[in-house]
Structure formats: C-alpha cells, structure tokens
Design a protein around this nucleic acid. Structure first.
Lengths: 151, 151
DNA sequence: TCGTGATCGCAATTGTGTTGCAATTGCGCC
DNA sequence: GGCGCAATTGCAACACAATTGCGATCACGA
C-alpha cells in the first residue's frame, strides 16, 4: 500500500516525464501534502533541512513541480512565494482557489468556494476567467478586537 | 489655481503633520496621480530619475505616504510592491479596490466595482470585511488567442 | 552490478527592498 | 529678505529571498 495515494500518483507522473523520484523530491511532496496550506520556500526548506536537504534542492524541486503543473506558486500579499500542491478537484473551469488574508493579523484563511466562483464570475462580466482570488481585509476576530478596544 | 486639487490637498495634509513639502515629494505624488494605476517603485524611481531624484528618496517618500494613509502599497502577484494614491471615494466601508491580473499576458485591469463589493461580501459570509481583492486568471483577449491557436 | 545523465550540495550572484550617515534644503522665525 | 535647525536628500552599503554554476553524487534502466 502506498503511504499516500496522491504522492505515488505524482511519483508516477514525474517518472513518466523521464525524471527521477529522489528522496528530496519525495520529501518536498510529502511536506506540501501534509501542510494543506500554501507554504513559503523558507518554511519548506526549514522543515526539510532536518532531513538533510538543502534549500537550493528544495527550491529546484519546487520549480520543477511548478513546471509540471503539480504545484501552484503564488503570492499572497506578503511578498513571499508560496507553494501548494495542485488539487485535482480544482482543475475544473471554475474558480479554483480563494484566500482571505487579514491585513491586521496577517492570518491566511482558505475560503470555501462552493457558490462563490460562479457568483464572482457573474458579478464581474468581461474580466476573463478567474482562476484564483486573493481577498484582503480585516478578519472577524481582528474586527471584533478593534470594536472592543474603541468605537 | 492649483495644478492639481488632490495634490495640493495632500500637500496641506502633509504639512499638517509637521512634514515638509519638498520637490521630491511633489514629484512622487504627481507621478502617482498622473498614472492612475498602481506603479512599482522601480517605475516611479525611473520616472523621477530624469528629474534628478534618487530611488532611495522615492522609496522613503512612498513609505511616508503609505504611513500617512495617502498611498496604498500592494502586491499584485508579480512579486513587486506597487503604490497607488488612495482614492477619496474609496474610503467607505465597502470593497475599495479590485484588480484583475492576467496570468498569461501579465496585464492588470482595474475592475469596476459598482455592485461587486456587496455581492462579494455577501457571498462569503464569515470572512471579515473585504477591503481589496486581487483576481487572477486569463483575460478575455488571451482566452480568445488561445481558442484561436488550438481547441 | 554498472554506466550515465539527472539531481544534489555548496558557494556565489542577482535584484528588490531597506538602513546609516553626512550634506543639503524647506520653512518658521526674526 | 536672511538665519538656523531639523527634516529630508543622496550616496553607499546592507539584508534577504530568489536564482544560477559547477563539480560531486545518486537513481534507475540495461
């Protein structure tokens, strides 16, 4: 049995392109897989350093995964690239990824996008097909904190 | 008569905080004002170099304007900070700024937000107050180009 | 098991963003 | 209009994420 179905699936894909499935590569994928959220290069590199891998290696593997379309590289407003495994169910024509980033606490929240994509797309005719959205503002918790501290 | 109402208004505000209205500062504001779109530090610095100002100066003035809330600094997905004069009419509680960034041609389009804010906010309950949104995807032109080149 | 080319580790480079400091300048005050 | 001084500028240097070069190492098909 595979440790991770998605992982071994990716491994096959990678080997299918004539590339090798190295330990570093496995570790990078495992790291992204277990995270669920987009991670910065730094975060991944730090996690994998304990396993003996260099940040350069991590970076190159991430870039390779991005190139193969297995990983999304994106920018979430704090000026750092973040990497995230592409989810298979997100490959459809609808809006794939929506995040909400709090300007106050810097927290990042994935937004459930069941109804949103269509709604968003419909509400903005003529902008092309939206594949991801980054929303910024003040999250509920921070808003409450502000209310409490003063009117 | 003032060259620019908004500009002299900002000048007064700046002086009101005990700061000076220098030529460099005027130039930065004028540059942002005439642009309309968010500009990168590099773009602004290049424009002002012709007028004899250093990029450091430009940067510091931008930061000051950001600090005073007169300029928005934001990241539009290409890993560069962009600066834009805060529009007075955008100060309300609704969604202020929406941009659409094309993943294919890197074009940036401001999105008209007449109805969107409420819609967006309503469609995403529980995420806090959205103050800006960056949408990414493929713009109409690029989508058409792709259609033409292959099915 | 072996050979070879993909990959790794290390060191160095790039480019944006940021800070330190001495020289300069805007502006209140006379 | 001129003076004084603190805010501001210009230059140089620094910080740090991102990226590249290259010789050593390792995965994997034969």
């Amino acid at each position: 049995m595979a440790k991770s179905q998605r992982g071994s699936q990716l491994a096959d894909q990678i080997r299918g392109t004539g590339r090798r499935m190295t330990k570093a590569r496995q570790a990078v994928i495992a790291c992204l897989e277990s995270a669920g959220l987009p991670l910065t290069h730094k975060q991944i590199a730090r996690a994998l350093r304990e396993q003996g891998f260099e940040q350069t290696t991590v970076w190159r593997n991430l870039m390779m995964l991005v190139e193969l379309g297995m990983v999304h590289r994106r920018e979430l407003g704090d000026h750092l690239w973040r990497y995230e495994l592409v989810r298979v169910e997100a490959a459809g024509p609808a809006l794939a990824v929506v995040y909400f980033s709090c300007l106050s606490c810097s927290g990042l929240t994935p937004v459930s996008t069941e109804a949103t994509p269509t709604l968003l797309q419909q509400s903005l005719p003529g902008v092309g097909r939206i594949s991801e959205a980054l929303l910024r503002g003040v999250c509920c918790d921070c808003a409450k904190a502000v209310e409490r501290s003063g009117p």
